[in-house]
């Protein structure tokens, strides 16, 4: 993957910057350029919105056969997470015993290495999630 493709997503990948529909107020992540509810009314009215980073595990899996970019990193957990703002995203869950992950688990975003472009290429950072201690 080329560097520009990573670079332009930095705000969302580092800081969970999504979009809020200026018409209905619904929050979207990953960012969208149109609200699927308000459609044409929302054109040009999608505003940047930073997610708080907290959410709940809706479903999860443990990847044991990783793609080439994640070789040597397995097993790792991938989850479908419902953010407190109501949108869903896909991310890894780290820093916990894989057996402890469960549907309904509360998580918070943290900052991790996602992948790297081989030994000589750029390192790509972004969000992953860890257990949210109450």
């Amino acid at each position: 993957m080329g560097v520009p493709r990573y670079w332009r997503e930095i705000p969302s990948r580092y800081n969970l910057i999504g979009k809020k529909c200026g018409v209905c107020g619904k929050i979207y992540f990953p960012p969208r350029s149109i609200c699927p509810t308000c459609r044409r009314k929302s054109a040009g009215k999608m505003e940047d919105y930073k997610l708080d980073g907290k959410g709940t595990v809706e479903s999860f899996t443990i990847i044991r056969v990783p793609p080439p970019e994640f070789e040597g990193k397995s097993p790792y957990a991938i989850a479908l997470i419902k953010m407190d703002e109501g949108c869903y995203l896909t991310g890894q869950i780290v820093d916990c015993n894989l057996d402890d992950i469960h549907i309904g688990m509360r998580v918070e975003a943290c900052f991790r290495r996602i992948q790297e472009d081989g030994k000589r290429g750029a390192i790509y950072y972004g969000y992953k999630f860890r257990s949210l201690k109450s």
């Binding site: 493709r5 056969v65 990783p66 793609p67 970019e69 994640f70 995203l89 896909t90 996602i114 992948q115």
Partner: peptide, 14 residues
């Protein structure tokens, strides 16, 4: 979705 699923390590079986 390459940018928002696969980028983070999600595979198709995943």
């Amino acid at each position: 979705d390459r940018e928002w699923e696969a980028f983070f390590g999600a595979t198709f079986p995943g």
